[in-house]
Simulated assay, not measured.
Amino acid sequence: MNIIDMRMHMNFSDAQNAFGNGKDSDDSVNDATYNVVYVDSHDYGPNKSGNRYSGGTDAWAENMSLMWTFRGIPTLYYGSEIEFQKGQKIDCGPTCPLATTGRAYYGDHLAGSVTASDFGKADSASGQVATTLSQPLVKHLQRLNQIRRAVPALQTGQYSTDGISGRMAFKRRFTSGSTDSFALVTVTGDATYTGIPNGTYRDAVTGDAKTVSNGTLSVGAPGKGNLRVYVLNGPGKIGAEGPYLK
């Protein structure tokens, strides 16, 4: 069965814990690539918290970077991209105003108009939605979507941590017909990959290119919320530099 990944969800107050729990629980499902992964929801936040997630913007960026590149289907609860109602109690019962809870009406933040030219690209906006689209986590999410869409391995590739040193580092590969997509990912920290195919790897975040001739590639720490995605024979830099992906 494909499931809601409750074990990862319960540990997203710390992305490292979510990553570790995700790896440890994968033998409990048929194929964790199709698990639904999320941080907070209409019921509760990480670690059974009854409040909307309030771990900080950098931590949110780190969670998103992990969710959009690790196995599973990333799912965003409405408003998390602007830290909507952060810290508020999600459900305080039938007597309190809905507007003060974590389930408050979000539609006002989407009022206005948007002109988009391509996937993940908002060229212009007016009204309140323009303010929403200017938020750092929105920019972060837009580029994560662009990178994920351009690299098949990040969508449905199987992952492994074999031969890898690093806190949140892994490799993913997807093959189908003429498609062979292989990506090396590290979130926040540095990493070293051994036993990988030789060839030219290009980072989808910075465009940096590294030639591997001895089966080993090392990557410096990109910083909290940031990541590196080195793709074998990849297209290079995808999207524009943002507040976290740079």
Score class of each variant (00 low, 15 high):
S124R: 01
A125L: 01
A125I: 13
S126H: 09
S126E: 09
V129A: 04
V129W: 09
A130G: 13
A130R: 15
T131R: 13
T131Q: 10
T132Y: 15
T132D: 08
L133K: 12
L137T: 12
L137R: 15
L137C: 11
L137D: 09
L137V: 11
L137M: 14
V138H: 11
K139A: 10
K139D: 06
K139T: 03
H140F: 03
H140W: 01
H140S: 03
L141F: 10
L141S: 15
Q142H: 14
Q142A: 12
Q142C: 11
R143Y: 03
R143D: 06
R143G: 10
L144G: 07
L144P: 04
Q146W: 02
Q146S: 00
I147E: 00
I147M: 13
I147R: 04
I147F: 04
R148H: 00
R149T: 14
A150S: 15
A150T: 07
V151D: 11
V151R: 13
P152M: 03
P152F: 02
P152H: 08
A153E: 02
A153T: 06
A153N: 04
L154W: 08
L154Y: 06
L154Q: 10
Q155E: 13
T156D: 10
Q158F: 13
Q158H: 10
Q158T: 09
Y159I: 14
Y159T: 12
S160Y: 05
T161V: 14
D162N: 06
G163I: 05
G163C: 03
I164Y: 00
S165C: 11
G166C: 00
R167N: 15
M168W: 04
A169P: 10
F170Q: 01
F174P: 11
T175L: 00
T175Y: 04
T175D: 06
S176Q: 10
G177V: 03
G177M: 01
S178C: 00
S178M: 04
S178T: 14
T179G: 02
D180Q: 00
S181N: 09
S181H: 07
S181A: 08
S181C: 05
S181Q: 03
A183P: 12
L184C: 03
L184D: 00
V185L: 09
V185F: 08
V185T: 11
T186I: 05
T186L: 05
T186K: 07
T186D: 03
V187M: 02
V187P: 03
T188E: 10
G189P: 12
G189E: 10
G189A: 12
D190F: 01
D190H: 12
A191V: 08
T192G: 01
G195E: 00
I196W: 10
I196N: 07
P197G: 12
P197W: 04
P197H: 11
N198G: 14
G199N: 14
G199R: 13
D203V: 05
D203E: 06
A204M: 09
V205D: 04
T206A: 07
T206E: 06
T206N: 07
G207S: 02
G207I: 08
D208K: 15
A209W: 12
T211W: 07
S213G: 13
S213F: 08
